[in-house]
Design a binder for these strands. Structure first.
Lengths: 151, 151
DNA sequence: TATTGTTATACTCTATAACTATA
DNA sequence: TATAGTTATAGAGTATAACAATA
């Protein structure tokens, strides 16, 4: 991983006003911290997201996971393969469509998801420590709008 | 690229409240739109960022580019190699440190940077069309804080 | 015909280590 | 000794096409 951020002469650059750049850099910082927090649980951001969705009560198909996480269906295959090999999730045939697999967490998977959620939340709290309550509220709204455009 | 986002049963998931997830997804949307807008100029988000910094008046070294963009120095090498082969930037020896290369845009590079900036700004404006003025102001502040923690 | 999951493959991105030239 | 740039390489992530089973 590259060195930690430094205050730099480049901070005066026009890029600092580019929201897409700031979004990319903020995400890189957040992703690195998240992966660090999840590593002790044997998870990364991707596998954590799949596990969390599988541990919820929505009963997502692999296709739905791919769309929601903006992954290719083939990437979901290997993520689920890995989680299934570790007995954290199961593939269940969808009774209403025999082509589809419903991905559901096992008891072991739900327990791990709960632990990992604690670690992820702690890491996020640390990153957001400098933000005001108002800033947190607005950023939630805005990111939801940007993350799911047209909805 | 995966399918466009869909409104989904999964929107009720706890992940929708996870700012790190929303940040990652918003970035994926933004990056895809940015790369699409930059493609006609033969650029991607990465090379565009390097070109823009080289076109400014900071005169960044490769090391500074790596830190600011959170890239490994070896990644900067190939980005600059590519831009240099296209005569968009030059490597100039730093007079005060003969180990370092200062990366500066050529006239051709500055012209392309200006064009690309227009395309990128248009794409960003479209993505942010739904945001209020107040939301834009706050997101700028917040993303700067998250992108450059501790500064 | 179209879609879900799968496999295979190629390509890009990321991370690491080692080397050189300078400091 | 340490740092800037470079090279090489391996690993992770991404994108595409093709196939079987099912709709």
């Amino acid at each position: 991983m590259p060195a930690a951020s430094v205050s730099s002469r480049l901070a005066a650059s026009e890029l600092t006003k580019d929201l897409s750049f700031l979004l990319a850099r903020a995400n890189a910082v957040s992703l690195a911290a998240g992966n660090r927090a999840l590593a002790p649980h044997g998870l990364k951001a991707r596998s954590y997201s799949v596990l969390l969705l599988a541990a919820g009560d929505s009963g997502p198909s692999q296709r739905e996971l791919a769309e929601f996480l903006r992954l290719d269906p083939s990437q979901v295959v290997s993520l689920v393969d890995d989680l299934q090999a570790r007995e954290l999730v199961e593939r269940r045939p969808d009774p209403s469509d025999r082509r589809a697999n419903i991905v559901v967490a096992t008891a072991k998977g739900r327990a791990l998801a709960e632990q990992a959620r604690g670690s992820a939340a702690a890491a996020e709290a640390e990153l957001h420590a400098e933000l005001t309550v108002e800033q947190r509220r607005v950023i939630g709204e805005v990111l939801r709008t940007l993350a799911f455009p047209g909805e």
